[in-house]
């Protein structure tokens, strides 16, 4: 295998690492921050289920990103992923909530602009609409679950200590589901741009043959897992402060809502079932894990009288929505110009 391929893949792996470092906190942040679940337990579960989600259900969202811009040249994919990673990094440094999904979409459009490829407007509209739908849907699910929780907790009299044990168990299960959904939904952000180029030769292990795409899914999953293990602890410990004070039960509901939404936007099975029953389908699009969680928290806060909403955080999120894709798009455009004209690499 050409070692240059690994250098080109490194930007995607860097993006995967950043995703693992930041978004694992959306899944297990409150559980670890409130000491309901140990960080080590969270990291193990998170890593395993992110990789499983990426391998088993990562295909759907990857296909949608591919439709937005099929980057066939490896240097082009490298710069696209690097631009997204740089946008994520700089936004995180500026303290703005960031979405890898938005960054990669912006970067792909940057590649389209540079290479003169038309951007598929129907796919773009589909993706843009999910950026609004995702937090709203997450808020609606959270409100419904919260009301159901209140209704049942008034009627089922479980001892506080036993309820605490159930909540811990539920946080772990919801975290596992959340990690699976994160892997399934967001793996496309990490390695989606490399897939059309098929950079890796088939790998034979025993009787199994792994295609380039399968290897990329695994590599992307491992990069996310590495991000979880090396950097997520700090983010998990502070996630509570970012979102405001949440009770363990409210946090659990926020994580479940986030996981359901991410799963809905990644599940081919659900899409097939909806289509089979003549219902409108949910687009398979990588959505923002952070925005799903924030949507759920805002939903619960509104239900409790909106006093707990931190409007400054909400304002930053709106800024992030606009700035992230534009920054990634501009970086990608100029980065590609640089690669093509300074290094003489074929980027399209």
């Amino acid at each position: 295998m050409d070692p240059l391929i690994l250098i080109f893949l490194s930007s995607g792996l860097f993006l995967g690492w950043a995703l693992g470092a930041n978004d694992a906190a959306n899944v297990f942040g409150t559980a670890v921050g409130t000491k309901m679940v140990r960080w080590r337990t969270a990291a193990i579960i998170c890593s395993i289920f992110i990789i499983l989600g990426a391998l088993i259900s990562g295909g759907g969202t990857t296909h949608t990103l591919g439709k937005l811009g099929a980057i066939s040249a490896l240097p082009g994919a490298f710069m696209t992923a690097l631009s997204a990673a740089l946008a994520v990094y700089s936004m995180t440094k500026s303290g703005l909530p960031v979405s890898t999904s938005q960054a990669i979409v912006g970067a792909i459009i940057g590649w389209n602009l540079f290479s003169g490829n038309p951007t598929d407007t129907s796919t773009l509209t589909k993706i843009l609409s999910t950026w609004i739908i995702c937090p709203v849907l997450s808020a609606i699910i959270a409100v419904t679950l919260f009301k159901m929780h209140k209704f049942t907790s008034k009627r089922i009299k479980i001892h506080m200590i036993m309820a605490d044990a159930y909540t811990r168990l539920a946080l772990i299960i919801a975290g596992a589901l959340g990690a699976y959904s994160l892997g399934a939904n967001n793996i496309a952000n990490v390695i989606g741009v490399f897939i059309p180029g098929e950079p890796l030769p088939d790998l034979q292990v025993g009787t199994f043959i792994f295609s380039s795409t399968q290897q990329l899914f695994l590599l992307g999953g491992l990069a996310i897992a590495l991000g979880v293990w090396t950097y997520s602890k700090r983010v998990m410990m502070t996630v509570g402060n970012n979102l405001g004070r949440l009770s363990a039960n409210a946090a659990l509901i926020a994580v479940i809502s986030h996981s359901i939404v991410l799963f809905m936007f990644a599940s081919r099975g659900l899409e097939a079932w909806l289509a089979g029953n003549g219902l409108p389908t949910i687009p398979l699009v990588p959505v923002s894990s952070s925005q799903a969680v924030v949507g759920a928290v805002v939903g619960i806060s509104i239900l409790q009288g909106a006093a707990g909403i931190r409007w400054s955080v909400l304002g930053k999120i709106v800024v992030g929505w606009v700035v992230t894709p534009i920054a990634a798009c501009a970086t990608c455009f100029f980065g590609l110009f640089f690669l093509q004209n300074v290094f003489g690499l074929v980027v399209q």
């Binding site: 337990t41 001892h159 200590i161 036993m162 605490d164 044990a165 811990r168 168990l169």
Partner: peptide, 17 residues
Amino acid sequence: MGLNLFRRTKQLEQQID
């Protein structure tokens, strides 16, 4: 972890009662 957690939880619940 699971069974151990629930056994200890039950003990603590009994102590509070």
